[in-house]
Write a protein that binds this DNA or RNA. Structure first.
Length: 448
RNA sequence: GGCCCUAUCGUCUAACGGUUAGGACAGCGCUCUUUCAAGGCGCAAAUCCGGGUUCGAUUCCCGGUGGGGUCACCA
């Protein structure tokens, strides 16, 4: 058997959503699994609706996902080939030029909506046709109801079905991996291929990815362009991992895969037949798992790049706070939010009031003031560059004895000025001995 | 509506005739914890219905029902 060649063939008529890219992921994984080629073809035969910006978005997204193609072209670049093949079919009387006299064209009215008075139709043998789908097995469809379908608007303007068949054959595509919604298109494409004398590719129709409302993903129903996930700081490997999990499952219970692992493990035979629903919540979890697997350096570097690309400023406390932010956030977007909104107290002056100081302490102000004095006293005995653990060892016994909420809540608020924050020991280490004591003093003064 | 595809917890799924129907996300509870997360532990949750075939059906066959797709001079 020759080299495996798959392709991803989107039309640049809108932003592609997760379902489209899931198809790309499978076509890519299958090609790479078999040491084959993955081709990207932009299907731009519809000049009216094809837009450069959509093509750019597709390229940009694929690049972000790092789904590298081995060849790239636009369908429009194959005009001569298409025309040659159309003429060939007409010459062989397998297709013919048809005079159209439909309603919209009658009564000498001007040709409306781009409708032509002449088109090229395929002579349909009108027989039941069976093909074997790599995922679903044999599928039989009677092509009679198709009639003599149109294959081109004119000799130089092929319609999708025709161009696809010619281009797939020209590129030596061995496996056509595409969405379920193309099953009913397959017979007519096979018919065209047979008429042209092409070798048939293997078809593998993937189950569709549906939205939460169980219908085909679409922009209007809230499906988002994949680039939005990039903008929210999702990791490309996590997105690929999650996408691969819709409709595919390995033999074991493993769920978190790198792309390399995916290529090793992927198997067309283990693809689901029924449609799956895109679940953002699970994607979020998968991303967190991938994020946790990053080394500290990788996280720092990638998070830094994310912040920079977003035009966010890098605060002075960036590095110190990284380990804490990492465990609390699932995406870079969330981490950025934490960085900006939850740790700003590290470099800005505090503003909080006595009620907040008392809120979770469940104790009298005088008692709290006493606790704070004790904390300051204890902290004085520690070395200048103390660690969170050292502070905890020093304070915790006292807190436990005197009442943790009465001691630790005010301490935490005094240091962070916030109702929610990391624990007071971490906070102390972050601020350093001197600043910690200063803030505790300030809080105590407020209580007097 | 015609044609085609499809059917296991809410969701993604495991099982390729014999299992207490397994895992994951979400949910709930407990724990850890000054707080919010994260973490650990646990609970609850499914074979669409009806016929066959079989000693035995989630699994094979038929019918129904549900869901989806497709019926363009769009791709």
């Amino acid at each position: 058997m020759g080299k495996v060649v798959t392709r991803f063939a989107p039309s640049p008529t809108g932003f592609l959503h997760a379902g489209n890219y899931r198809t790309a992921v499978f076509a890519y994984l299958f090609a790479k699994k078999n040491s084959g080629d993955f081709i990207l073809r932009i299907e731009d035969t519809d000049k009216e609706r094809s837009k450069k910006e959509f093509e750019e978005n597709i390229l940009e997204t694929l690049e972000w996902l790092n789904l590298k193609h081995d060849a790239f072209y636009r369908q429009s670049e194959h005009k001569e080939l298409h025309e040659q093949e159309i003429k060939k079919l007409i010459a062989e009387d397998k297709a013919y030029i048809s005079k159209e006299e439909g309603e919209g064209l009658a009564q000498g009215a001007p040709v409306a909506q781009g409708k032509r008075s002449e088109v090229i139709r395929f002579r349909n043998p009108k027989k039941p046709l069976t093909f074997t789908d790599a995922i679903r097995g044999p599928i039989t469809i009677d092509t009679s109801d198709l009639g003599d379908f149109i294959i081109a608007r004119s000799v130089s303007e092929p319609v999708f079905h025709f161009a696809v068949v010619v281009d797939d054959a020209a590129a030596g595509i061995t496996h056509v991996i595409r969405g379920d919604d193309h099953i009913s298109n397959t017979p007519r494409q096979i018919l065209i291929g047979q008429a042209l004398g092409y070798a048939m590719p293997i078809y593998a129709h993937l189950p569709l990815v549906l939205g939460p409302d169980r219908t085909k993903l679409s922009k209007r129903r809230g499906a988002r362009a994949l680039t939005e996930y990039r903008d929210e700081g999702y990791l490309p490997e996590a997105v690929i991992n999650y996408l691969a999990l819709i409709g595919w499952h390995p033999e074991n219970d493993k769920e978190i895969f790198s792309v390399t692992e995916l290529i090793e493990t992927f198997d067309l035979a283990r693809i689901q037949k029924s449609a799956g629903i895109f679940d953002e919540v699970k994607l979020h979890w998968v991303n967190h798992e991938h994020s946790k697997r990053l080394t500290d350096d990788e996280f720092k570097e990638q998070f830094f790049a994310y912040l920079t690309s977003r035009g966010e400023s890098i605060p002075s406390y960036f590095e110190e706070v990284l380990p804490i932010i990492r465990e609390r956030s699932a995406t870079f977007g969330e981490a950025a939010h934490e960085l900006k909104n939850e740790f700003d107290f590290l470099e800005h002056a505090l503003s909080y009031d006595v009620p907040l100081l008392l809120k979770g302490a469940k104790a009298e102000p005088s008692e709290i003031a006493k606790h704070i004095s004790k904390i300051i006293e204890t902290l004085q005995t520690l070395r200048d560059r103390f660690s969170a653990q050292e502070v905890k060892d020093a304070i915790f016994p006292y807190a436990t004895e005197a009442g943790r909420s009465a001691v630790l809540w005010p301490m935490r608020v005094a240091l962070s000025g916030k109702e929610k924050s990391p624990d007071p020991f971490v906070l102390s280490a972050l601020l350093g001995k001197q600043e910690t004591i200063e803030r505790l003093n300030a809080a105590q003064n407020m209580l007097k």
